[in-house]
Simulated assay, not measured.
Amino acid sequence: MTRIPAVERRAELVAAAVRMIAAHGVEGATTRRIAQEANAPLATLHYCFASKEMLFAAVFEYVAGQYREVLTRNAVRGDVETTARELLRGLLEWYVANPDVGPAIVELISWGQRQEDKQAELVYNEAFETMRPILLNAASSAGQSVDPSTIDDLIYIVSTLSDGFALNWLVFTDRAAALPQIELTLGVLNAWMSANLGDSSERGARASRASA
């Protein structure tokens, strides 16, 4: 039997934990179920993770890393408005393409808030720390003068719209409806940017609507 490297086995167990949390909730995602989902002996899981809490901490890090990867991948070279739209679009399309992610995140955030180490904040802090330099660099490259506090507000809007869409997708999982809802959600972002970032946002919004 081929020996699977420990790093690879840990990654398989974390991915299996995400699927089991999405399907059964945090309490129902037992170590036995997770090990079976990963096609690994239960003893291997306990070897890789000394406790269920350590496994879930790795799951939080994994989800935060996924956010970072999605945001970085969608960091287009454009002005603030164009960049913010693509960041949000990338997140929304990621939720649709990965239906286990939304339920797992909701379960994890709810569970994490009851823990003392505030792991639930990890995902949001990671998203903020990833988006902020992307948007600041976009403003600098485009020669835009945008107050850093406005950038922070924009990040909050993107995060909130993303969360709302994720919850709706979690409830209905209607792919046909989700596609126009992505454009509707982007329209809300366009409206906020038009009101808070000036004329260039409205030009970008018109271009976005025309493209859609």
Rank of each mutant, 00 (worst) to 15 (best):
L184I: 12
S200A: 05
L108V: 06
A38K: 02
R32Y: 06
A178K: 11
L179N: 03
G187A: 05
G187P: 07
A17V: 04
E86Q: 15
E69H: 12
A138P: 02
A22R: 07
F60G: 03
D147T: 08
A84K: 06
G143P: 00
V18Y: 01
I4R: 13
L184Y: 12
A97C: 05
V70H: 05
Q115W: 03
P103D: 12
F60W: 15
L184V: 12
E126Y: 03
S201K: 02
L13P: 02
K52W: 08
S208P: 00
C48I: 01
A29S: 13
E116G: 02
E61P: 00
A210Y: 14
T185Q: 04
S51Q: 09
I155C: 14
P133A: 06
S194A: 15
A40K: 02
S140T: 09
E116F: 03
A120F: 13
A6S: 13
A142T: 01
L136S: 10
E37G: 00
V80I: 13
S110G: 05
W94A: 08
T185V: 14
E129H: 13
T130H: 06
L135K: 02
W111E: 11
R19Q: 14
T83G: 01
K118S: 11
A207P: 00
I4H: 04
A6D: 11
A22H: 09
V59I: 07
L197H: 11
R3V: 15
D100F: 10
A178S: 15
T130C: 13
N98L: 00
R114N: 11
D152Y: 06
R73M: 08
W94E: 03
A176P: 03
V59S: 09
E202V: 07
S201V: 01
A40E: 15
A75N: 07
N196F: 11
R175G: 07
R3L: 13
I157F: 09
Q113G: 15
E53V: 08
I34A: 05
L136P: 00
A43C: 04
R68G: 06
N74C: 11
T30F: 07
Y67T: 02
E12N: 09
D147S: 14
D174F: 10
